Computed example of a mutant assay.
Amino acid sequence: MPQSGPRAALGTSMVRAAMLAENTPGRLIVFDTGGTAAGADAAARAAMKRKVAMILGPLLAEEVAPVAAVAGASVPVLAFSNDPGARAPGAFTMGITARQTTGAILRYARSRGVRRVAVIADGSRWAVAAAEAAAGLQGELNLDVRRIDVAAGQPLPAAGDAPDAVLIPGGGDPVMAAARNLKTTGIQLLGTVQALDHRPASLSVLEGAWLASPDPAAFAAFSSAFEARMGGEAGIIAAIAYDAAAITKTLRGKNALDRAGLLAEPSFETATGPLRFREDGSVARDMAIVVAGPDGYAKVATSRGA
Rank of each mutant, 00 (worst) to 15 (best):
A241P: 00
A239P: 07
I240D: 00
L263I: 08
F268T: 04
G273H: 03
G273K: 05
D258R: 11
L275Q: 05
A256Q: 09
D243V: 11
G261I: 05
T270I: 12
L257G: 03
G253I: 02
M230N: 13
A271L: 10
P266V: 06
A246I: 07
T270Y: 06
A241E: 00
L263D: 01
G232M: 07
A260V: 13
E227K: 15
G231K: 07
G235L: 01
F268Q: 07
A264F: 09
Y242D: 00
G273A: 06
A271N: 09
A228H: 11
L263N: 04
A228L: 13
G261Q: 03
S223L: 08
G253V: 07
I247K: 03
K254S: 13
G232Q: 03
E265L: 10
I236P: 08
I247T: 02
D258N: 15
L251M: 03
A239R: 05
Y242F: 15
A225W: 02
I236D: 15
A228T: 14
A221W: 06
K254F: 11
T272G: 12
F268H: 00
A244F: 01
A245K: 02
I237W: 07
L262G: 02
E233D: 15
S223A: 15
E265P: 04
A220H: 09
Y242Q: 01
A241V: 01
A234K: 07
S224I: 12
T248V: 13
A271W: 05
R229E: 12
A244I: 02
R229G: 04
T272Q: 11
A225R: 15
F226R: 02
G261W: 03
G261V: 05
K254H: 13
E233P: 04
T248E: 14
L275E: 02
A264S: 14
F226D: 00
T270H: 06
A238K: 01
A264H: 12
A264G: 12
R229T: 13
A241T: 00
I236S: 14
R252G: 09
A264W: 09
L275G: 03
L263V: 05
Y242G: 01
I236Q: 15
D258W: 08
L275W: 01
A221I: 14
G232Y: 05
T250Y: 09
A234Q: 10
Y242I: 06
A220D: 15
D243C: 13
G273M: 07
E265I: 12
L262M: 08
G261T: 06
A264R: 14
